[in-house]
Amino acid sequence: MKAFTTFIKKAFNFMDKEFWKYTVVFFVLMSMLYVYMIYAGMFKSPTFAYAAF
């Protein structure tokens, strides 16, 4: 029980303001990349065309 309490305490100490700041930044970047990948297909346009005839 004591070991568990110590672990929790250490974990909480580790998760300081800086840790959460980076977590949020990484999360936002991942989400943005995902959204971009999902919608990028919608903006694809033909890069060539057949001859008109």
Partner: peptide, 10 residues
Amino acid sequence: AAFLTALALF
């Protein structure tokens, strides 16, 4: 560690 946490959350 922050990267891994963010990945798990994502």
